[in-house]
Design a protein around this nucleic acid. Structure first.
Lengths: 129, 129
DNA sequence: TCTTGCTCCTGTAGTGGCTACAGGAATTAG
DNA sequence: CTAATTCCTGTAGCCACTACAGGAGCAAGA
């Protein structure tokens, strides 16, 4: 059993984030030593690593928790896991498309701004009716 | 002079957002009628429309305010405006690249998940050491 | 005149996922 | 014995709003 700092080091999840996960019920409350300090088992650290990987893949915390729960069931439900992943993928795809549209719009609005003109074309187009 | 609801309708900025901009000093405090209700001029509405367009282009509020301030100076400083736009563009480009990396990683992790296998390959790869 | 419904006011809390303290207690190293 | 480190709880801050609660004012219709 290890203290929270070591669990943080082993999992890559920050100390405050670990306590936050506990408060939010994402991970079960760990045991406590006689001096009231949290004690983490290898299983606990495994959960943190799992969550860290999910977050690195961009899953929202709620979906990360859902995946963690699935992963701890006797028979991991691949279909449900795929559902979660698919919806996450489509939200990423949507974000990419939105950002690309934004990028094009920005390029358009600044297109005539190459010279040091007195009346900035970008500002004009933001202002005009 | 119009009330806040009409200013919201004309600018597309929500009523609560308008009050928020005022609190945050993004726009100057508007006049008040005898009954304490806010009164907006065409100039005020023009500022809200400008901010709305900046936000639609994804500019953070602080940058939107900087652009608004530039736009209200006697000689709009195109170079400064372009600076702001360029840094915003590069942050968008970075976000797109990050999301595309995420998308590829997600595709990899779910690649072997087409069948209804008992041990979900995605969950396994999130769990393994 | 009374009521209904709309708009407006201030102030506070919530969103996500943490991070950064403050202020204190306990442990460890020298 | 002291100093440094780690831990504890609890709160505030980030961004850009949104969503109330609880109340006041105002216009139109019965």
């Amino acid at each position: 059993m290890i203290a929270i700092g070591e669990a943080s080091r082993q999992s890559g999840v920050g100390i405050e984030a670990i306590r936050y996960y506990e408060r939010e019920g994402i991970v079960p409350k760990p045991g406590r030593a006689a001096n009231n300090r949290r004690l983490y088992s290898k299983t606990d650290v495994g959960r943190l690593i799992f969550l860290k990987r999910c977050r690195n893949l961009g899953f929202p915390l709620a979906e990360a928790k859902a995946l963690l729960d699935l992963s701890e069931q006797r028979e991991a439900d691949c279909a449900k896991a795929l559902d979660i992943a698919a919806s996450h993928k489509s939200s990423i795809r949507k974000k990419i498309n939105d950002l690309e549209r934004l990028e094009r719009a920005l390029n358009e609005v600044t297109a005539n701004c190459t010279n040091g003109s007195l009346h900035c074309p970008m500002l004009l187009s933001l202002r005009e009716h």
